[in-house]
């Protein structure tokens, strides 16, 4: 049995360390906040200009002026601060955020990431993704291992236009956990297998240079 989306999020949450400032993308990354380990205190940053993002509000607490970067209504926590978009990205680009967890369409063995456009399809824009992957200290991708048509999303080289060059440190898929040394030799290292998944299965579905730890 490969991991579910929630199991992938729970695994990503194990990478959180006490005191971390973290930016979570949309989709599986958002679920990570449900699995923050006990005794680990993290502060969520939202690139629209909020540090200290709380859970979704109860119906009677909704405030139209408090949203996250996904435009969802959220709440404050003790110690929340607000700031301009320029300050928000100074924080991101300047390396003050410890960890970014985000989704991807493709990741290459050298750490290249593609998640913002498919040529020929309507492009919605990159939002803050390029700034996050370029500036945040550590980048973890959570994604499905293969695309809907069965092609590996963990590749020797991205086929789609990239969001960042040599930016990904770790990839978590339904099959397991993979690390990339983005400053070293290209290659993906399988460091943890999901329950019931075999190494051969991972090998068959990975189109990147794969090392088994």
């Amino acid at each position: 049995m490969a991991w579910t989306r929630d199991q992938m999020a729970a695994r990503a949450a194990k990478e959180l360390k006490d005191g971390f400032y973290v930016n979570l993308g949309i989709g599986i990354p958002t679920l990570v906040s449900n699995y923050v380990p006990e005794n680990v205190d993290i502060t969520l940053q939202s690139e629209n200009g909020m540090l200290g993002v709380g859970p979704f509000p109860y119906d009677n607490e909704v405030d139209a002026d408090i949203i996250n970067a996904g435009k969802q209504t959220v709440t404050e926590v003790k110690g929340t601060s607000y700031f301009s978009s320029a300050d928000s990205f100074a924080m991101i680009r300047g390396g003050h955020i410890d960890l970014s967890i985000l989704g991807a369409m493709e990741v290459a063995e050298n750490g290249d990431l593609a998640n913002w456009m498919i040529p020929g399809k309507m492009v919605k824009g990159m939002g803050g993704a390029m700034d996050l992957v370029a500036g945040v200290k550590r980048v973890i991708v959570t994604m499905e291992h293969v695309s809907k048509d069965g092609a590996s999303k963990l590749l020797d080289k991205c086929t789609l236009p990239i969001t960042g060059k040599k930016v990904v440190d770790m990839v978590i898929t339904e099959f397991g956990v993979f690390t990339i040394d983005k400053h070293g030799a290209p290659g993906v290292t399988l460091v943890e297998l999901a329950d019931g998944v075999t190494v051969d299965e991972v090998k068959a579905k990975t189109k990147a240079k794969l090392t088994i730890a």
């Binding site: 320029a86 990205f89 390029m130 700034d131």
Partner: peptide, 25 residues
């Protein structure tokens, strides 16, 4: 990129005609 957009505006308003960023390299 959102941060580049924000900084382009900030710079424009601060009299800075151009700047260097690692975003988008």
């Amino acid at each position: 990129p959102q941060g580049t957009l924000a900084e382009r505006v900030r710079a424009g308003g601060a009299g800075i005609p151009a700047f260097y960023t690692k975003t988008g390299v």
